[in-house]
């Protein structure tokens, strides 16, 4: 169990804030536990996706094409991996939550940085690895672990911290199907210049 975040202390002491942030490295950022896909990989959501992206790769929709081109069955677009485990959304209050689909734990590093004044956010890097094609019926779950927090840096947007987390995806057999490594800058807009 982690100590509750002491926001007043963190505002007064960069050292205390930095130690708190570093104490989260290696920890699961989803403090309510593993994220389970609300639905298995399914054709209605795939069809919705390919129509939104106008992606006409036939192996996503047409079984004969998928088999003709060496796939055992029609497959989901690889970039849908994250979509399968997106949490269900509570629309009420989403704007006040900064767009988060559900209430976040205010003591995770992102929440603490918001409360200390580093409330700006800018995504800087995304690395996606896909290990196998997903097919209808696959049921995914994901965990997200904080990989690193930089020291406080002076950036073009003000003082800030770069946070990198790694979201891992496993299937119904516990086998890894892919991961995303994601880096954001959390910055204090009042310190620009």
């Amino acid at each position: 169990m982690k100590e509750p975040a002491d926001i007043d202390l963190f505002k007064a002491s960069q050292d205390a804030l930095d130690r708190y942030l570093q104490s989260w490295v290696g920890e699961n950022l989803n403090t309510t536990g593993t994220n389970h896909a609300p639905d298995p990989v399914n054709m209605p959501m795939i069809r919705h996706w390919v129509d939104a992206f106008d992606d006409r790769n036939p192996v996503y929709e047409d079984t004969a094409s998928a088999k003709q081109h060496g796939w055992g069955a029609r497959i989901a677009p690889p970039a849908m991996m994250q979509t399968w485990t997106m949490p269900r959304v509570i629309l009420e209050g989403i704007g006040e939550r900064g767009g988060a689909s559900q209430e976040l734990d205010p003591d995770i590093p992102l929440g603490v940085l918001d409360r200390v004044g580093f409330n700006g956010i800018l995504a800087t890097n995304s690395v996606l690895d896909f290990e196998r094609p997903l097919v209808e019926g696959d049921v995914l779950q994901s965990d997200v672990v904080l990989e690193s927090v930089s020291e406080r840096k002076k950036t073009g947007l003000g003082l800030g911290y770069f946070l990198t987390w790694r979201q891992t995806y496993i299937d119904q057999d516990g086998a890894s199907v892919g991961r995303q490594t994601f880096t954001v800058l959390k910055f204090d807009p009042s310190t620009i210049g």
């Binding site: 790769n57 998928a66 081109h69 690889p78 890097n125 995304s126 690395v127 996606l128 896909f130 094609p133």
Partner: peptide, 10 residues
């Protein structure tokens, strides 16, 4: 349609 996207790093 035979290509598998293994990695996207942006």
């Amino acid at each position: 349609p035979r290509a598998w996207v293994k990695n996207i790093n942006i």
